[in-house]
Design a protein around this nucleic acid. Sequence first.
DNA 1: GCAATTGGTTGCGCATCACGCAACGGTGGG
DNA 2: CCCACCGTTGCGTGATGCGCAACCAATTGC
Lengths: 262, 262
Amino acid sequence: MPAVSDTEAGAGASVQSVDRALTILEMLAREGEAGVTEIAAELGVHKSTAFRLLATLEAHRLVEQDGDRGRYRLGVGNLRLAGATTARLDLVTEARPVCRQLATDTGETVNITVRSETSALYLDQVAGSSALQSHNWVGQHIPLHATSNGKVLISELTEAELKRAVRELPRLTDRTVTRRAELKSQLDHIREVGYAVAVDELEVGLTAAAAPIRNAHGDIVASMSISGPTFRLTHERLERDVPLLTAAATEVSHRLGWGQRV
Amino acid sequence: MPAVSDTEAGAGASVQSVDRALTILEMLAREGEAGVTEIAAELGVHKSTAFRLLATLEAHRLVEQDGDRGRYRLGVGNLRLAGATTARLDLVTEARPVCRQLATDTGETVNITVRSETSALYLDQVAGSSALQSHNWVGQHIPLHATSNGKVLISELTEAELKRAVRELPRLTDRTVTRRAELKSQLDHIREVGYAVAVDELEVGLTAAAAPIRNAHGDIVASMSISGPTFRLTHERLERDVPLLTAAATEVSHRLGWGQRV
DNA sequence: GCAATTGGTTGCGCATCACGCAACGGTGGG
DNA sequence: CCCACCGTTGCGTGATGCGCAACCAATTGC
């Protein structure tokens, strides 16, 4: 009898073996790669069990192993699934060409995010021309108060909605906004100018600017951002890039039916 | 007794329920969305079984349902997994074994390039078996309009992107394409047939053919080429080698998550 | 406006199937 | 050269995943 059961995502999950297999995927997403024994230990099951789960995942290309008898890591099947996931979201489909253009124009990384409960969910990313892909944010949930995207996403919420979306303001760097009053005055400013900037608020050395994407009703449904190292995204660079950003976000809004004369 | 068994990916997959769950994901990737009954029928299991598998997938956010009792579709959890997959995915590493195979099959030099602003950047090279060696291109930036690789890389750009990427068309040999209209008609042709050929356009005596490498979204992210002396890469030789080239490029695309398998 | 059909959801009990066990083969380190 | 470790595989058992049937909600047709 396994003492460990309904942990985290496992709640409500009826099929044990599937639950375990999916937990393996999440482990690999977190840790990069792992061996059978290691996975079995973390899952609290026998080696052979973990091995069979891995074999099944491998048959669907969701994991692959290093050599013939090596460690396991995530496989390309995930990319196909993600491609199909985003293809379904017309937001991403419409935004993608615009993002590519913005990425080449500014040379920085472009992201598309939506609000998911109390966090910003990163849906898509186009790497800037600046050689090294900094970090892939896709699929991650980030606190709303600590990023330019997040602030844009909550900038037009009602008082009650805001209270629900931002319950606490944990400090992530020493530039993170942690006082509610300050956050609110920043949101006022964002509504006024139509974009948000965050310097070193999520990670030290990371600067980002974001602008809202609206649907046909004028609601903010998503946010588009450019981000890069603070040393490169100086005040002067932002003065050049922010107008490009807001124009791109507006373009996507138009494609979603915003501002069309009826 | 389930008449349908070890189909497609199921071969070698030991854990039945996991195999079924993953098959559901693939179904949803293919069809966009589906209901419990529909899924159960296609899987050859009872409704309740399909439902429990879906519930488990939903707990891990790999699927989500439309309303409270609606149809099912792929969920955002896939994005997270894909983000973690790309983080460790390296174009050169994935392409290298395929390049080696292509080099031995054709006997010519194989190159991998990506677009870097207004030029093609050579990332990797595998020398062909043929004694006569061309020099090593790795690390070099070459004008986009003068090589087969470059033309592939710009073949699906929008009008605006193309304008920015190819500002001028300097003449490098007397076969170099220097008229914008001609370049565009060549790009039309490349899109149609799926590969590009350049004879004596970069250097006199150098012929190359290139084919696109795509990511999970279908975007052209890189180009693969074979190149050799013009006297050897005759029309007949190309007729034999180009199918090998396009097959190899497609194989790499698959390794990067590009769809359409089998 | 009601009946009928469709489609997602849930408790139950049996048999299957997934699990733990133990042994194997390859690899790397002492 | 042996030992320890790790991925892999056949086997027997019982936990578990499955089919069944009934339930409920929504939509359709009369």
